[in-house]
Simulated scan of single mutants.
Amino acid sequence: MSTLLPQKRLRLSPDVRRDALLRAAYDLFSRHGFADTRMDDVAAAAGVSKGTVYLYFPTKEALFAALLRRDVLPRVGRILFVLNHYNGPVGWLLKRVTHFIGGKIDAGTVPLYPKLLVREASRFPELARFYHDEVITPVLEAVEGLFRRAIARGELIAGEPKMYAHLFIAPVVKAALWYFTFGEISAPAVKARPYLKAHVETFLRGVRP
């Protein structure tokens, strides 16, 4: 008579186990938010003990930061490369960027992380600080450099590049905030893509010679 022997537990490599924890955390943060997700929940979803989670991530904030490094910072790096090396017509790039972002907002496919930060930054300032230092500040500085080069070429009137950067970014943030705050209960009076298109056209009329 044959017998069924207990299967030997598969030993996962540290990289595979770490990836499983990150995937579990992303799913839980998406469904429950940062505050309402416990490390116990992440461990259970990944199929490991709670102690195993802490071997890889000492805090929930460290787990969130690891997700940002995996999912956001590589994309930010590509964006920064374009912004820092682009020397073509600035209006063309601004229109392309806002067309892309507006489409994401209208389609409801904005990445998880900005939405989480808007909702929970006041309760978890260390998350906001990490995102500010690693994402917001480098992007703003790159946009500022983009405007500085356009001014030097005579494409834009002389002005403060830092102010130009903030004036350009502000309506983009407003469109995203509207989606994050009211998107689940009410359709916007104006879609993000045409709104941002009108913004860029108005902005360029004000800063071109």
Rank of each mutant, 00 (worst) to 15 (best):
M1F: 05
T3D: 14
T3Q: 15
L5I: 13
Q7F: 10
L10T: 14
R11C: 07
R18E: 05
R18F: 04
A20G: 07
R23A: 15
A24S: 10
A24Y: 05
A25V: 02
A25H: 07
Y26S: 09
G33Q: 00
D36H: 14
T37I: 03
R38H: 13
M39W: 06
D40I: 14
S49R: 08
S49A: 09
G51M: 06
G51L: 06
V53D: 06
Y54C: 08
L55I: 08
Y56R: 00
F57I: 00
F57K: 07
T59A: 02
F64I: 03
A65I: 12
A65R: 15
L68P: 01
R69S: 09
R69Y: 07
R70L: 10
V72K: 10
P74H: 04
P74G: 03
V76L: 05
G77P: 03
I79K: 13
V82W: 06
L83V: 03
L83W: 01
L83F: 01
H85S: 15
H85D: 14
Y86T: 10
P89L: 04
V90F: 04
W92S: 15
L94S: 03
L94T: 07
K95V: 08
K95L: 12
R96E: 14
F100E: 11
F100N: 10
I101R: 10
I105R: 03
P114Y: 08
P114K: 06
L116R: 04
L116M: 05
L117R: 04
V118P: 03
E120I: 02
A121V: 05
P125K: 06
E126M: 09
A128P: 06
F130Y: 14
H132N: 13
E134V: 09
I136H: 15
P138G: 01
V139A: 10
V139W: 13
L140N: 13
E141R: 13
A142D: 01
A142P: 04
I151W: 12
A152P: 00
G154E: 02
E155F: 02
A158E: 13
A158Q: 11
A158L: 09
A158V: 09
M163C: 09
H166L: 13
H166F: 08
L167S: 10
F168C: 03
I169H: 12
P171L: 06
P171T: 02
V172G: 00
K174Y: 15
L177K: 09
F180M: 01
T181A: 13
G183L: 07
S186V: 14
V190C: 08
A192F: 03
R193Q: 11
P194S: 07
L196T: 04
L196N: 06
L196M: 06
K197E: 15
A198G: 10
A198Y: 14
H199T: 04
V200G: 05
L204E: 03
R205D: 15
G206W: 01
G206L: 13
R208W: 02
P209N: 04
